[in-house]
Amino acid sequence: MTVVQTVLVFVGIPAGIIAVIALAVYGKAIVRQPNRYRPGKTWDYPGAWYVPHPEAVVARPSTGSTTTAVGGASGEW
């Protein structure tokens, strides 16, 4: 085998295999960047408040314009 052939067989083929596996693993993420949060990543989207569909909500007689917080829980991650 010439030097070129040796390099192709012992470097080229492993590199090719590694490239195929890497593409299979990360390819999808490279092509289409998923809109995904990761802890520690910045989050600079404006605040948004999501409420259920009005027809899913039981109408309550309004007791005034505001209410007060009574309980709940908090946490951090």
């Binding site: 802890p39 910045t42 989050w43 600079d44 209410t67 007060t68 917080a69 009574v70 309980g71 709940g72 829980a73 908090s74 946490g75 951090e76 991650w77």
Partner: peptide, 10 residues
């Protein structure tokens, strides 16, 4: 961003 969550009940 702050890694905080709060659940508030009335």
């Amino acid at each position: 961003a702050q890694r905080l969550l709060h659940i508030v009940t009335g």
